[in-house]
Design a protein around this nucleic acid. Structure first.
Length: 701
RNA sequence: GGCGAGGUAGCUCAGUUGGUUAGAGCACAGGAUUCAUAACCCUGAGGUCGGGAGUUCAAAUCUCCUCCUCGCUACCA
């Protein structure tokens, strides 16, 4: 299809923290390269982004810091925006979802779907804080983690052990707002029946995008579609977000994943009155750049929403990248294991392109990749500086020494095969880089540019103009050959600037200045030409494009990572103990569990038993099926300890058993009782067993 | 356990519809050179393509089984 306009979006960063280099490598840098290339092609393109400013984590952070959610998003919106600007990410607009235009746009979107009967209304029981008179989202619910006993796990996740939770799993759930115990109460929400769009999505993605989308993206979509889609609530009970535009929906807001992608539309509206050309006309090419964590929202949910609404184009491609690890470990914001963009800009002033180079050359395009400072140094010093920077510098120095600082003539009648080969390489490079960028293979495209510089180095080496000018007489005799060589080297340098521009715009700009050409020269159609610099045109003196990264800088950055990690880990420990102490002080009676009478205790039939047999339960990672000798009988008990013990090592162990616990089926096996375990803070399990051997079946009291 | 994505030289990655001695960059070794940021250029060493079986005249590439890493998901009373 011949597209008339391009609409490029980059995932809306969540405004509860700064951006790190993983974000950059994952979507903003590739998107920026793609857009800069399209602009150089003089195509009609709009590059859309903005802060995602709703959702529960922001309210949590606000609560912790004792400020309003608006304060939080204002702060991070500024930091994020500055980071992007500092790195040369060239959005046409960087908006934010707390803007009025976004509220109106997303409400209108919701209303349209509502009026068309696209939603299903459902009532469900949710945790409710009676003291504050609010329903609580999962994040607002705090309780003891069933896995690691962290007393401050959230209803969706435990930050200490990282396990995914649901509020029902928490022991002693309480409100993060008031610290009071919770009750369940009915609430109504609007569900979007994704299942109704399964056929449409299957046809569009599974059949339509098989060979177009990246395998990771396609595979994940297919996986979701094959396992069947479920209706999904598109509203939440919260005070922070876009209010649901219906009468009687007080205290309800749009689900952040409903309103966030609409943010692309509202930002476009804010940017241009012609916004609907970009969103509604079929000859627009819409491309979403995202990280792999966003695939399902951009490939399944948002397209289904757009389809339900009608009148919008669907993404032509969603080139999601994988994750970038740091020094061999996953990025973790809570552990502060990350390289923050705002700090990089401070630590390496005027070195944006060094980072852009490394993040592109090592982008996680097909699998998770690792960023190390040593690799950063190697790539900058041995590829960027040594090959590209050095070639450009050689060309300038030689031109000044051998050609009086002016672009020498080409002498077209005397060019040889070597010259012709170089000219062909210049032309080919254009096509190669072009094809790579158009198919989202940015690392390949960048490598092609470097490769062209490498060819320049070889050409210089083969011609060795310096040895043709060892003496004034010799130089005079060889001046024509020298001129041709330097002429081509300089034209090659101009070409490098054009090809490099999408990737390293700061460098391309510097090169233009040194060649004293206007930036219009960087237009893509000029690539491949060897008449970009006019003969006899004086150029500026040589000046290095890149500086080397020193060993000490690498050491400093690695140390900084370690220090950050140490500080953050300490803070987590202190916070959780401080919070636990505070919780006890504020609610002395709400200590772990309420007092029970002896009679209550006596209801529990605790007995000693010996494990006779143990085996893994099929299709379950955590379960062991145990046969326990209870003295009078042998019981089957299923226990979730397979991650901690192998079957062999626990056979023969004597254990304490809750003998009168109601039977429960797990993975199809009926469990009759429960093995008592102590659990350390680090999650380690220890059997609660008699110190000396007791008779099987004897009572524990 | 299910699903998805990966597993190719020390490191980072290419390998089109199965077809001659499996490629590139970096790192490493040797050489050449001095215009250049001890940079560049040349040469070399380095891989039973995670493992096993099969289909085929021919498999990194197709089929089946298996192991490892990452992600989603199930199981934890």
């Amino acid at each position: 299809m011949d597209y008339k306009r391009h609409l490029v979006t980059a995932a809306l960063p969540y405004a509860n923290g700064p951006v790190h280099i993983g974000h950059l490598a994952g979507c903003y840098l590739p998107a920026d390269i793609y857009v800069r290339y399209q602009r150089a092609q003089k195509r009609d393109v709009k590059f859309i982004c903005g802060s995602d400013e709703h959702g529960v984590p922001i309210t949590i952070r606000a609560m912790r810091e004792g400020v309003t959610p608006q304060d939080v998003v204002d702060k991070y919106n500024t930091i994020i925006k500055d980071s992007f600007a500092g790195m040369g990410i060239s959005f046409d607009i960087y908006s934010r979802t707390s803007n009025k235009i976004h509220q109106e746009t997303s409400q209108a979107f919701f209303k349209k779907l509502y009026d068309d009967g696209a939603f299903e209304e459902r009532e469900s029981e949710q945790y409710y804080d009676a003291e504050k008179d609010v329903f609580l989202a999962d994040r607002y619910i705090i309780g003891t983690c069933p896995n690691c006993a962290n007393p401050n796990a959230y209803g969706d996740q435990c930050e200490k052990c990282g396990s995914t939770l649901s509020p029902e799993q928490l022991i002693e759930p309480r409100s993060a707002l008031s610290n009071s115990p919770l009750v369940k109460k009915a609430t109504t929400h609007w569900y979007f029946p994704l299942n109704k769009y399964e056929d449409f999505l299957k046809e569009w993605i599974v059949e339509g995008k098989k060979d177009e989308w990246k395998s990771n993206v396609y595979g994940q979509c297919k996986s979701w579609l094959d396992s069947g889609l479920q209706p999904r609530a598109m509203t939440r009970d919260s005070s922070w977000g876009v209010p649901v535009p219906l009468p009687g929906a007080k205290g309800k807001v749009l689900y952040v994943w409903f309103d966030a992608p609409i943010g692309y539309i509202s930002a476009t509206k804010e940017l241009t009155a012609q916004w609907s050309d970009y969103w509604c006309k079929e000859d627009t090419k819409l491309v979403h750049f995202i990280g792999k964590d966003n695939i399902v929202f951009h490939c399944i949910i948002f397209p289904a929403m757009l389809k339900a609404h009608g009148g919008f184009v669907l993404p032509e491609n969603v080139p999601a990248n994988e994750f970038l690890n740091i020094e061999g470990e996953k990025v973790s914001t809570s552990r502060n294991w990350a390289v923050w963009v705002d700090e990089y800009i401070k630590d390496f002033p005027d070195q944006q392109d060094a980072l852009r180079y490394v993040l592109c050359a090592n982008a996680p395009e097909s699998k998770d990749n690792d960023f190390t400072w040593k690799d950063f140094q190697d790539r900058v010093n041995n590829e960027l500086s040594a090959v590209l920077g050095n070639f450009e510098n050689r060309a300038f120095v030689l031109m000044h020494k051998l050609c009086k600082g002016r672009v020498p003539a080409l002498h077209a009648d005397e060019i040889n095969d070597m010259d012709k080969a170089l000219m062909a390489d210049i032309r080919d490079a254009k096509t190669k880089v072009e094809n790579a960028i158009e198919s989202y293979k940015f690392r390949e495209g960048l490598a092609e540019v470097i490769d062209l510089a490498r060819k320049g180095n070889k050409y210089l080496q083969d011609n060795a103009p310096w040895s043709l000018a060892k003496t004034p007489e010799l130089q005079e005799a060889n001046q024509k050959r020298i001129d041709i060589c330097m002429h081509l080297c300089l034209q090659l340098t101009a070409n490098l600037a054009i090809l490099l521009n999408p990737f390293l715009p700061f460098t391309a700009g510097k090169m233009c200045k040194k060649m004293k050409v206007v930036e219009r020269m960087l237009e893509w159609e000029n690539a491949g030409r060897i008449d970009l610099l006019k003969v006899n045109y004086p150029l500026l003196p040589p000046e290095l494009l890149f500086r080397k990264i020193e060993d000490e800088e690498v050491a400093t950055q690695v140390q900084k990572l370690q220090d950050n990690l140490k500080k953050a880990t300490q803070a987590i420990v202190e916070n959780s103990t401080a919070a636990a102490v505070k919780a006890e002080q504020e609610t002395p009676l709400a200590a772990p569990k309420a007092t029970i009478t002896f009679d209550d205790f006596a209801k529990i039939d605790l007995r000693v038993g010996t494990i006779l047999k143990a085996e893994k339960v099929e299709k379950a990672d955590k379960l062991l099926k145990l046969e326990v000798d209870m003295g009078t009988e042998v019981r089957t008990i299923v226990s979730g300890i397979a991650m901690h013990f192998s079957p062999e090592e626990i056979i023969g162990k004597q254990v304490s058993v809750v003998a009168n616990l109601a039977p429960r089926k797990m993975r199809g096996i009926e469990s009759n009782g429960m093995i008592l375990m102590a659990q350390n803070a680090d999650g380690k399990l220890i059997f609660v067993s008699p110190l000396a051997t007791a008779d099987n079946g004897s009572e524990v009291k």
